[in-house]
Amino acid sequence: MVLQAKHVTKSIRGRTVLSDVNLRLESGTVYGFVGRNGSGKTMLFRALSGLISVSSGEVDLDGKVLRRDFDVLPNLGITLETTGLFPSYTGVENLAYLAGIRNRIGMSEIRRAIQRVGLDPEDRRTYRKYSMGMKQRLALAQAVMERPDIIMLDEPTNGLDEDGVDMIRQLILEEKERGAMVLVASHNKEDIQILADQVYRISAGVVSPREEAAL
């Protein structure tokens, strides 16, 4: 599976947030995107996933053009900084609601995903009572629970303790082993150094490749 961005540019109210982005991304690889706050990492993920339209250029997956041949990438798992879940649902209920859309997995897979991120599937607390770290873990669980082909994780280690960070890194490597294409955006250089096979730097919406990270 190959995901390509060809001369992708995005402007919002006259301000260019992505500028002539060219990428070729393949399955079974972890790609790291580093950049300062406000550099365009989240916007890039939105554009690559199809959540936003691009002002010019195109994104294609195996030759099929996004937003023309399909609305969003098929079989995508994503976390973004600004997304949350239903405050009045428990963790399991939230994931069950989302899993019901594609209906590819059952309760056992949902519970396994929750356990994988270090949460307790029997926890009856609602999402509104979760700590920031727990919310982050649950967001990651919803991204990986359906065994997606493409995973986009925006600042996945935000708010996590040391054990949580190790757990997430292990999870990303497992997904890569499974053959998924994993995109990780982070301003934390250590995360990128440990995880990424290939690293890109984003600055003011411009994406440029960095030297390939050591495995």
């Binding site: 399909f70 609305d71 969003v72 997304t83 949350g84 879940l85 859309i101 919803q142």
Partner: peptide, 20 residues
């Protein structure tokens, strides 16, 4: 409305597309 406020709508749109 709450789904849009919390951002959960984005996770749903990421699964089936914004229009759907």
């Amino acid at each position: 409305a709450k789904e849009r406020q919390t951002g959960e709508s984005i996770l749903l749109a990421a699964r089936i597309g914004g229009m759907r």
